[in-house]
Each structure stands twice: as C-alpha cells, then as structure tokens.
Amino acid sequence: MSLAALQADFRHWLEQSDEAAAARLGSDRSAGLAVYQNNYRAQLMACLVDAFPQTLAWLGEAAFESAAAHHIDAVPPSSWSLDHYPGGFPATLAALYPRDPEIAELAQLEWLLSEIFVATDAWPLTLDMLSEVDWERATLRLVPGALTIALSTNAAAIWTALNAGEEPPAAALLPEEEALLLWRQGFTSCFRRLDADEATLLSSLADGRAFADLCAALAADRGEEAGLQRAGELLARWAGEECLASSV
C-alpha cells in the first residue's frame, strides 16, 4: 500500500469508522486504531466545549455533546489550526434546531467574539486624538476584526446573563432585528447594541466612507443642527469605546 493510500484509509477510519479501511491498515491493529479514533473525536469535542461555554450552558451538557458529536461526524476538520474548527458549529446548530434560532445565534456570537480576540492589533482612535484629526478629509474605519451583525432573537441578552452567571431570559424572537457592534477593546472582545442610524453608519464604514459623508447623511435625515450633533455624539462614543482605528 502506498503512503497516500494508507493516509486516505486512516482518514476514513477516523472520520467514518470505516471498517474496510481499518482492515486494510492491518487486522491486528484494532487496539491502536481505537486509540487514534478516540483521540481524534475527544480532541474535537474538547475544542467545541472550550469554544462555546455559553451555548453549552444554554443547551445543557447532553444536548450540546449530542450536537457536537453530530458536527464531528458531518464536518471533519480541514484547517491547520484547531482554533478554526468551531467556526462551522453555529451552522450545524441552525440545522439541528430550526425552531430555536437563539441557539445558533448564541453560538455565532461566541464564535465571532473568539475570532475578534486574536484579530490584528491596531492603535485605536481615542478621545484625546479627536482634536488632531482633519475632519474634512478623514475616512473612518473600524479596528481590525470589528464588525456589525443582526440578530433576530434575544441571544445577546442570553449571552450577557450567562456570562455574568445570572439566570438567562427565556428565548424570544425580537419584534425587529437587533444590530450589534462586536470589537476588541484592548485585549477584551466586547459587543453592544446599536441604534438604527448608528448601525447604518457603521456598516457603511466598511466601504471607507468619509466622515463628512456620514455627517451629510445624518443632516439629511435629522436636519443640519441635529444631524451634526448626532455625528458628534457618535464619534465621541466610538472614540471612547476604542472601536475606530487611529489612522483616519
């Protein structure tokens, strides 16, 4: 058997408990093959448990492990980094629990926070830097890794309660989607809810829009004075929260 064929058979044994593949690897190898398969599955299970503590708390241990086992069967790892493996789990949860959308949204929130945790470092724009910026030309951008998402359920409130060790609220669909900003402040991943106009403005930052354009959009929506006042409020808040990169 060639090395490539041996490695393909070993893969099929690990992924699918393929007995024919195991037999080709050696009929008297069952004890050793069992060790490797146990290691493979145990490592992926531990990875998912570590990555989704609040989703586990919400689902309960038995349901979480059942879903994780399903995911391990359905989605074999492909990346060089085990840290990338949990990224597909929210989609598996969405498929397993179509009537409980808060579960997948909770898992997605946990996954995105963990991705932001290791995003590229950047100096944030801070309040004391605002006076030095040429606002006629400035283009705002979020710190690396920061993003906005929209949730249809109260998953964010569930995460917050569970993370604080408090009793979570009952799952609920929201009357309208809730926009969240996720970013890293210092070395801590965080998120907060966004007002509707703020969500629209922040999502447009990804397009590299000038601050002057944002002011104009707010002025058109609220009138000149109120629009500029709102722009100032938002800018001060974003700078205070260190969610904007400093090179504006």
Binding site: F10, Y36, P76, P77, Y85
Partner: peptide
C-alpha cells in the same frame, strides 16, 4: 491528507 486535518500525531 486530502483537505482533512486530524489534529492528532498519526
């Protein structure tokens, strides 16, 4: 192997 990574030392 083949886009699969076992994350174990095989």
């Amino acid at each position: 192997t083949g886009g699969f990574n076992a994350h174990d030392l095989l």
